[in-house]
Design a protein around this nucleic acid. Structure first.
Length: 468
RNA sequence: GGAAGGGUGGCCGAGUGGUUUAAGGCAGCGGUCUUGAAAACCGCCAGAGGGGCAACUCUCUCGUGGGUUCGAAUCCCACCCCUUCCGCCA
């Protein structure tokens, strides 16, 4: 969320930076400082009128108190008449200032963060710039298979049964592959807690609307999310809707609005990433500067509707409705955040280095970055079976963009509260790490060599093979 | 789910319709004293949003939203959350 006062004072810089994002023409117009500041003007004028009326009401009420004390009933009655007249005007003035405020906030809530100056220009993933590479493509004496071919042949990866239980984009892992996925998560948590100073958190997986707004999954990306509602509330809701239908001749659109409003109280969102609960840990609070930076990590399932990904990565575990991910979150001061970003990237890379996987780091261009990000590094791991790099981590610095939405502040030396900076990154995606290990460590016979770093987490096992 | 109690500034806590313009304490910041520190003493110290070149000033916020009233932290209604007990439950 942007600060309207900052936009007021830096209108040209705002327009220029936002212009580097890829936006459609309609958004470009709506998000222009000219449009925002026009609404802001209206808002401030309305506030001024409303508050002046309130000020007079308050002053007159005090005068009434004084008049009554002096037994001057005539003066009191005259003042009461004045206040009553004033009170007729107040609701309209309040409505006006509230609606202007709401209009501005609704618009601000859908404007993406501004890219930092050093972020490269570009419209989409083709504009991304390689930062550095680690390792090299291995030589195989055979044609490497894709992970799902390997997993299905081993009898430990079952998409068909998963479809029976849950539909497309789910998987059942069995036996040693299930264990290896667990081992990967354990190993990553140990690396981050023991070597990188992150605190392990076991957060809720169902979160409120407010939490989802705080990290900016809402309102704009509602379609990518799953939610859960308790059944009894839904039954109640159905009753309410039925009652309302009797009273009004509702159109389809109105019905949907009623349904959404009724749902709002009872629903919880399934987290699309542990970034949401971890970052919101500091929402609506003022943290002492001595507690910063806070470094948090969690290994959780993540849930994504993948609404816009029809037809993409339909085979295998690359794009699932449910996957496991180890997440890293840092809460810092504004001064520390960029250095923390580099540190977080290094922490994520350390995991891939331990697994001895080939990868590259790319700096996302302005047009390809996520909504809340100021600057993003993606780590892409080499998949021999797919013969290409695939994203396995994304590390972003968000500045005060999320902090403003969450109202998360710290108190520094000058004793004034200021918004914290937030960062998040995968450290790393566990499902995709399993894919990378399987494809990288496969043998000609379809077995998978267990990387040394993982062996202690798998009871010293050296190799995953099909049961005889 | 039922019953009872509670929610006041960063924290603790007083406050039952009009000098509350939210007391007091803790923590924090600045100072005096000290070789330095501690203690003691003095001062400052909630947040957000408006107006003003500025000095300054106004509005809102006592869990949230409504209501009563000339006037609400205080009275009424609804909801949320916390604590304790009971029930159910992994």
């Amino acid at each position: 969320m942007h600060d309207i006062r900052w936009i007021r004072e830096n209108a040209a810089a705002f327009d220029k930076a936002l212009g580097r994002r890829s936006l459609d023409d309609q958004s470009r117009k709506a998000f222009s400082s000219a449009n925002l500041l026009a609404i802001d003007e209206r808002r401030r004028a309305a506030i001024l009128q409303f508050e002046q009326a309130q000020a007079r009401r308050n002053a007159a009420s005090k005068e009434i108190g004084a008049a009554k004390k002096n037994k001057d009933e005539a003066a009191a009655a005259a003042l009461m008449a004045e206040v009553n007249a004033l009170k007729d005007r107040l609701p309209a003035l309040e409505a006006e200032s509230k609606s202007a405020e709401e209009e501005l906030n609704k618009l601000l809530a859908t404007i993406p963060n501004l890219p930092l100056a050093e972020v490269p220009d570009g419209q989409d993933e083709h504009g991304n710039v390689e930062h550095h590479k680690h390792g090299a493509v291995r030589n195989y004496s055979f044609t490497p298979k894709q992970h799902f071919e390997l997993g299905e042949a081993l009898g430990m990866m079952d998409f068909e049964t998963a479809a029976k239980l849950s539909g497309a984009r789910f998987v059942v892992l069995k036996g040693q592959l299930a264990r290896m996925e667990r081992a990967l998560g354990q190993m990553m948590l140990d690396v981050h807690t023991q070597e990188h100073g992150y605190e392990e958190i076991n957060p809720p997986l169902l979160v409120s609307d407010d939490a989802m707004f705080g990290t900016a999954q809402l309102p704009k990306f509602e379609d990518d999310q799953f939610f859960a509602a308790d059944s009894s509330s839904l039954t109640q809701m159905a009753g309410q809707i039925a009652d309302m239908l009797d009273k009004l001749d509702a159109s389809g659109e109105e019905l949907l609005a009623i349904e959404k409003a009724a749902l709002q109280g009872s629903r919880r969102w399934l987290i699309p990433t542990a970034e949401v609960p971890l970052t919101n840990l500091v929402r609506e609070s003022i943290i002492d500067e001595s507690k910063l930076p806070m470094r948090l990590t969690a290994c959780t399932p993540c849930f994504r509707a993948e609404a816009g990904a029809a037809g993409r990565d339909t085979r295998g575990m690359i794009r699932q409705h449910q996957f496991t991910k180890v997440e890293l979150v840092s809460i810092t001061t504004p001064e520390q955040s960029n250095a923390e970003h580099e540190r977080m990237l290094a922490s994520a890379e350390a995991v891939l280095k331990k697994l001895d996987l080939h990868y590259r780091v790319v700096t996302l261009c302005a047009g390809d970055m996520g909504f809340a990000s100021q600057k993003t590094y993606d780590i892409e791991v080499w998949l021999p079976g797919q013969n290409m790099f695939r994203e396995i981590s994304s590390c972003s610095v968000c500045g005060d963009f999320q902090a403003r939405r969450m109202n998360a502040r710290y108190r520094g030396k000058d004793n004034k509260p200021a918004f914290v900076h937030t960062l998040n990154g995968s450290g790393v995606a566990v499902g995709r790490a399993l894919v990378a290990v399987m494809e990288t460590y496969q043998e000609a016979d379809g077995s998978i060599v267990v990387p040394d770093a993982l062996a202690p987490y798998m009871g010293g096992m050296k190799k995953i093979e099909r049961k005889a």
